[in-house]
Design a protein around this nucleic acid. Structure first.
Lengths: 108, 108
DNA sequence: CTCTACATATAGAGAGCCTACATGTAGGAT
DNA sequence: ATCCTACATGTAGGCTCTCTATATGTAGAG
């Protein structure tokens, strides 16, 4: 899949994957790939900066930990982030409805 | 709607709106707005350059005409453009399925 | 000792959408 | 006469976000 098309929806994906449990970057990438049945192969150069951006925005809180000798930065959703996720979900529904109504008029 | 999120899907919209009839830029903007129930308010600064890009790519053919004293550039879909539209449609379905499977797991 | 998986990070490039501005005609209202 | 709105196209520059490529380092298997 052309992940360039993700433009603007990456935030929603990251927040969503962190909805029920905190995860670190590497695990987030794996979770995205797994949940999408292999369709979403998001490069590290996309995810790590995006996570920092979301942290700066106050949607995520990151914390360093060392597991098995390796350092991880685990992110969890903040209350603000949870609100943002709800907003992203409804924005996504609006978005697909709008594009869908143009792309496939008869199925809408 | 945040039309910034359109990133990468504009081509699909433009090709789709031209599928059954040639239209000029201004009419395309109106058609997008109408078909989407007002959700897609795409600025001229987005549409006109995009149309030229699609023409350069060989997907559209443009032609000048004068109607009621006003000049219009009417675009029609080329055979290549029609093929591209089919590709855009299946890409769109893949895209929404992938994002949807992450954003709303239980509905997938 | 090497290779793979795990794990994070940054710089720079590229794409594409937006805002703002520029230009011009036609027709109705004041 | 003049102004305003709708019609109609176009460009420049900015901005955001994703990608590629690269760098760094640990752990464990072979």
């Amino acid at each position: 899949m052309n992940t360039n098309a993700l433009h603007g929806h990456m935030d929603a994906l990251l927040l969503s994957v962190l909805e029920h449990e905190p995860l670190h970057g590497y695990a987030i990438i794996e979770a995205l790939q797994e949940r999408s049945g292999g369709a979403l192969a998001v490069p590290t150069g996309t995810v790590y900066p995006a996570l920092r951006r979301l942290e700066r925005a106050g949607y995520l809180a990151g914390e360093w930990a060392t597991v098995g000798g390796r350092k991880r930065r685990t992110y969890r959703l903040t209350p603000t982030g949870r609100t943002a996720l709800a907003g992203e979900r409804s924005a996504w529904r609006e978005f697909t409805a709008a594009i869908g109504s143009v792309l496939e008029p008869r199925t809408q």
